[in-house]
Design a protein around this nucleic acid. Structure first.
Lengths: 190, 190
DNA sequence: TAACTTACTTCAAATTTTGAAGTAAACTTG
DNA sequence: CAAGTTTACTTCAAAATTTGAAGTAAGTTA
């Protein structure tokens, strides 16, 4: 078996050239529950990035489908993500920016559409009249509730047992770490 | 402590309402190396989806920055991802579609730009003249190599020890699972 | 109170994605 | 083998998303 080490290759048994790793579905199935996988594979940040891109695409189209089913025509997946990001709290545009690492003008644009569609309310804060306070309207909450409801099925499939839960959590934390590393790098250089 | 159970909430100690989970950086730091985290948090697929969206955004802007540094002006982050997806093998457009769950017309569009920019070569397959064979040119390989090179620093930061590697791998596999679940759902309904 | 900063909005342009329609080659079937 | 079908991909226009520069109004500071 050819062992082609990557720059940062460590602990390689079944090696990959940086691209084929995406095609190892059997690992996913076989490894459930293992702590020390027999075939350790090096995952580079590019592979993760490509995976993240794919998964993101999938989720967006899932959202679109779900919304079509619900008969919602005036909200795209991106706006739906904004609604989900708002959730059931009242917050300012700035807080929302932090929640999703959005760009200001982008959120402004979406908020305008969502406000026009009646999904959110914006009220100027009394304290600071520059700051807009955002919250979901009844309609917006209903849409989120419907999405959440539809999402229940996925959660049941994804989180079948303790092991799944643990893995989901590790995935979440690891992504958070990627977020920090990539985010800081973007600001300060690595 | 208020315990607000989610639809699919299981094994909750420190509960969250589906939104605040994104703001637990201390967990990431504290848990490195723990197998059975003390504060188990339920991660729903929406939270993961939002995290994925954010991380994806971050990576795209990182790519953009990296490319600007390299002085590459005619390739956006999306096209760069396509180049990375092609890698060092020769493949057909169809295979490329599978690699990234792209939409055909989209890839066609990017391949045209990349071919115009001299980053890829397309040759019609002899076997099947409908099928285009794609591969990176010297220039394309150079760009990928540069990106990979720049990526080395991130890999070193992200994969410091065995625990990191394990977590990255679990994240990768879990994302792959999300990919399958969300993808199948999109095609066949859950 | 003048200058600066913050919080957000607007608008135009660029980029990315979608969807419908088209083309040519390969396959299938009567 | 001719006609119809499917596959593999391309093209084009329109829509959706994202960016970036410039603007506005309110708060802050010197």
């Amino acid at each position: 078996m050819i062992q082609k080490l990557l720059h940062e290759g460590v602990e390689v048994e079944t090696s990959i050239d940086g691209y084929d790793a995406a095609n190892f579905p059997e690992i996913t199935a076989e490894k459930q529950g293992h702590r020390h996988p027999v075939h350790t594979v090096v995952v580079t940040h590019f592979e993760l990035a490509r995976m993240i891109e794919r998964v993101n695409r999938r989720f967006a189209s899932l959202l679109r489908t779900e919304m079509t089913k619900l008969g919602v025509e005036d909200v795209g997946p991106a706006q739906a993500m904004v609604l989900l990001a708002i959730g059931d709290v009242e917050l300012s545009v700035g807080e929302l920016l932090d929640r999703g690492h959005y760009v200001g003008s982008n959120i402004s644009y979406y908020l305008k559409q969502l406000a026009d569609g009646g999904y959110i309310d914006r009220v100027a804060s009394q304290r600071d009249k520059r700051s807009a306070r955002i919250r979901l309207t009844e309609k917006g909450e209903q849409l989120c509730a419907n999405l959440r409801n539809a999402g229940g099925a996925y959660n049941r499939v994804l989180a079948r047992d303790d092991d799944d839960l643990r893995n989901l959590e590790i995935a979440f934390q690891t992504l958070h770490r990627l977020e920090l590393v990539w985010g800081n790098a973007a600001r300060y250089g690595i």
